[in-house]
Design a protein around this nucleic acid. Structure first.
Length: 197
DNA sequence: CGACCGATTGACT
DNA sequence: GTCAATCGGTCGG
């Protein structure tokens, strides 16, 4: 695969990191399994200036990873059953994160299917990773992965495939009330794994 | 404390 | 289209 992104990629303004994450390869090693997916949909959450951000009201035990060094994974638990994963951005002390909303599965598909299967129901390929909690379930990302350094070997992101501006679309973010007007969702135009709210 | 509700998903009318 | 699942974060008393 291509080379691992350096810390300097993450230590930048959140909107820039969000757009530039499109096309990158997200890699997760879990025991003998390796999962790889191309990032095709993300949302920026901009800390103290963003009412929709978990970090808007300051640092707490839950969101402290967002206030730390860029290039770590912020994983949170929601709706009593789902996990969602973010990439931490900006410099230490300034909270920022990019929510990974959808990936195009590249490697580890069979195990992803098993991870995503409930009650023996079979899922088609497009439902494997077309949502933030779906992707975490497919890639076995859980509470314990919160804070993981993306410059380590367990979870990391590589250069992947460049996505030119003409292939990028922006929209309002999904599933939030405050800050709904901001177009801080970025996705690859026409990609079949992009979630459709 | 107790009440409310969420960066979601899947099942169902 | 509607709605329950399920639990921890957050906020008011």
């Amino acid at each position: 695969m291509t080379r691992k992104l350096p810390r300097s990629f993450y230590s930048r303004p959140t909107l820039r990191v969000a757009r530039d994450l499109l096309g990158k390869y997200f890699i997760r090693r879990a025991g003998r399994f390796v999962f790889v997916g191309k990032i095709v949909e993300v949302e920026a959450y901009r800390g103290s200036i963003d009412p929709a951000s978990h970090a808007y009201r300051g640092k707490t035990p839950r969101n402290e990873v967002m206030f730390g060094e860029a290039g770590h994974l912020y994983v949170y638990f929601t709706y009593g059953m789902h996990f969602c994963a973010n990439v931490v951005t900006e410099c230490p002390g300034k909270a920022g994160a990019v929510l990974l909303r959808a990936l195009e599965p590249i490697r580890g598909l069979e195990r992803m299917k098993l991870n995503r299967t409930t009650k023996g129901r079979s899922l088609d390929l497009f439902q494997l990773t077309n949502g933030p909690a779906k992707f975490c379930q497919a890639f076995s990302i859980v509470r314990n992965d919160n804070g993981t350094d993306l410059l380590g070997d367990r979870i990391y992101i590589t250069e992947g495939e460049p996505v030119v501006d003409s292939e990028v679309s922006r929209s309002q973010r999904v599933g939030i009330r405050t800050g709904r007007d901001k177009k801080w969702r970025y996705f690859v135009k026409g990609n079949l794994w992009v979630s459709r709210p």
